[in-house]
């Protein structure tokens, strides 16, 4: 009995010690903010940068915490299961739509309150240097040999797959998609095992400069700042092609407005800071700050597009 008493007194003392923080929680943030990061790679690197940046402008520690798995599903589920306090935010992306439409999570983007969009990444289509001069040559070859062109993607239902589908739909050709578990596109292109691949430009840039691979087209409306030599699909005459991977911050729906405002303000300051601009050039993403309202509209518009596309591809569940 003595021990039980002792334990309970320790428990009470500790909870008071910890609780004192949350009782005084009139001002946000009064303790550290956890930012769930859904993927590895660039998503994680940029996410960690943003966390550092927010920390400076928010006046509280922001800890990037990775919860990978299921194409983002695991992380979204975690945020959905947390209290809507603003202390749990997520470094989200288009995956909020692909996980829902792919049947991985039973809730859609409306479960989350948008805070701010931070960046976009533009996928590019690349081929081995010397194989195809431009996109028209590629389209002509694929038209002559339907289903013969091997296109490398990260996996079925992945963002690179959806982008490829949009590109080749616009070209009006049928191709053969080859899934790679991980992004090994450059070597597979160099070795000639696949004919074309859609990936992030950072993977191709060095090979493009060395004259080993050629980036044929970007899928954004405007040229990519880090690779200004790559024409966009729209310039090449395929006006409908406009796909980019956006990344931004969101919290669970129902998070107090002033908490969202606080994080939004911190994000805005960081988005225009010289460090973030320098990082965008080095890593190869574009800064695209949107406030909470505009971000919400973008997510909704994107969700509609992705839903329709996945339905057409037979990936909607």
């Amino acid at each position: 009995m003595k021990i039980v008493k002792k334990i309970s007194s320790i428990l009470v003392a500790m909870s008071l010690l910890l609780g004192s923080n949350s009782f005084a929680a009139d001002k946000f943030p009064s303790k550290y903010v956890e930012m769930t990061v859904l993927f590895g790679g660039t998503a994680k690197s940029v996410g960690q940068l943003v966390a550092k940046g927010l920390e400076k402008n928010l006046g509280a520690t922001v800890v990037p915490v990775s919860r990978p798995g299921g194409g983002g599903a695991v992380g979204y589920k975690y945020i959905q299961s947390r209290p809507a306090s603003g202390y749990d935010i997520v470094w989200n992306s288009n995956s909020v739509s692909t996980t829902f439409h792919g049947g991985k999570v039973p809730f859609n983007f409306k479960t989350f309150a948008p805070i701010a969009a931070m960046s976009i990444e533009v996928p590019v289509l690349a081929v081995k240097a010397g194989s195809f001069k431009d996109i028209n040559e590629l389209a002509a070859y694929a038209k002559k040999n339907p289903g013969k062109l091997k296109v490398g993607i990260s996996g079925k239902g992945a963002f690179t797959h959806l982008t490829s589908a949009i590109i080749f739909d616009a070209l009006g050709v049928k191709v053969n998609y080859i899934s790679y578990g991980k992004g090994k596109a450059p070597t597979e292109l160099l070795a000639g095992r696949i004919d074309a691949a859609v990936q992030w430009p950072g993977q191709f840039r060095s090979f493009d400069k060395a004259g080993q691979l050629k980036m044929l087209a970007a899928t954004s409306p405007k040229r990519i700042a880090s690779d200004p030599g790559v024409p966009t699909m729209q310039e090449l005459g395929y006006k409908k092609v406009d796909v980019t991977m956006w990344r931004g911050l969101a919290a669970k729906k129902g998070t107090p407005k002033d908490h969202i405002k606080a994080i939004e303000a911190a994000a805005k300051t960081y988005a225009s800071s010289p460090e973030f601009i320098a990082a965008s050039k080095k890593i190869g993403f574009e800064i695209n700050y949107l406030d909470s309202k505009a971000f919400g509209k973008k997510i909704a518009a994107d969700d509609k597009k992705i839903g329709q596309l996945m339905k057409n591809l037979g990936l909607k569940k």
Partner: peptide, 14 residues
């Protein structure tokens, strides 16, 4: 390492 350890669901609700 500036990382996060579980904060405890019940403690957070207090």
């Amino acid at each position: 390492l500036n990382s996060a350890l579980p904060r405890g669901t019940i403690i957070e609700l207090l």
